[in-house]
Write a protein that binds this DNA or RNA. Sequence first.
DNA 1: CCGGTTTTGTTGATTTTTCAACAAAATGGA
DNA 2: TCCATTTTGTTGAAAAATCAACAAAACCGG
Lengths: 202, 202
Amino acid sequence: MDRRIKKSQKAIMNALIHLMAEKDFEHITINEIAEHADVNRGTVYSHYTDKYDLLDKCIEAQLQQLIKSCLPMDETETNLSMDSLLRTFQQMEKDIFIYRTLLTNKGVPSFRNHLQEMMKKEIREQINEYSMDDTSKEIIVQFLSSAIVGVIEWWLMQQTVPCSAKKLSAMLRQLLRLHSEGASLLLEGASDEFAEDKGEGF
Amino acid sequence: MDRRIKKSQKAIMNALIHLMAEKDFEHITINEIAEHADVNRGTVYSHYTDKYDLLDKCIEAQLQQLIKSCLPMDETETNLSMDSLLRTFQQMEKDIFIYRTLLTNKGVPSFRNHLQEMMKKEIREQINEYSMDDTSKEIIVQFLSSAIVGVIEWWLMQQTVPCSAKKLSAMLRQLLRLHSEGASLLLEGASDEFAEDKGEGF
DNA sequence: CCGGTTTTGTTGATTTTTCAACAAAATGGA
DNA sequence: TCCATTTTGTTGAAAAATCAACAAAACCGG
């Protein structure tokens, strides 16, 4: 990609994020974005259809970065491993301003959703090693992904980062292990009990 | 000026300064500057003849900023007044990295000289209110400008700024007043004494 | 000293960005 | 509701930047 394009897109996306830290997305104009980015208004339009397209692409770019940071670096590493988690949180900490803004801005409910979807996908891959029915799996996936996103939100939204990315990933790693194993045992027990009840009920 | 030109020149000048913080000017290549600035090498050449031209223009730009910051804001304000000095030091503090680099890099003896020339000019305008011969005036100008530049160098080159720009300008202002008045009295006394000696000598 | 490599300075074709201008749509206040 | 102002989306011409390529000069190690 031509470096001019890269520079323009980066400037425009950064401008959007900074403006979103100050006002609602709906109240931001293309003019403001262009001025803030120090590019011509036409340049914004040559890269993005409108501000909604810009926002979508901005979110997408951030998510791609996150996905990239949490990819296993070799085949010995699993998803949601300690190293993978650490890289993800370090990436977030590095661009903390961006993530805070995307998570708080009223006009952007979807970033949180995207983040959770990303976590769900990772958890599903981890949880496939447990034998249980699909509904049970989805309950666990929902439970854990909500918990992770909740913790991430808490972590990012403090005035100062409450603990290091390293500590956070270590704690989350432990919590994930504990809760996924615990949940799977619990659900197996409930399933057996349900089967017995059904047998006796009829 | 077209904003593209402004952006390119700024990026190129900043790249030079950053590279100069790491290595001698003589060992810096145009290639490195272009890469650091994230512009095409041809762009560097379209704005500057060679790296020496770039350096000259870079120094000139910084000096212009300094001059601008120390200009009187209205006719009630004099040169080297408290406010004028303060604005100058605040400007330096704001771009402290640049000034440190320009003052320390082996390849740039001239920045310090430019700075001193600038101070000399200011002091000359202040000192014209004292009646004394030209040589005496120049001695005082040299004395005070060297002292000011010496203090500025000391102030900028510490690991952390040793005192606020406000405190520095207040102290310098007092020192300037004390030393210019004291020096003018001293030189008047020496002039009289010299005349007497000459009379008696012969 | 020689030769391989790096750097410089330049050229030309192409692309992206700039800017001004215009019409249409949206906004907000009276 | 009306109207003045602002914002949007677009167009076309010009300028600046990009890139690859080339030749010459400079550098540096054997």
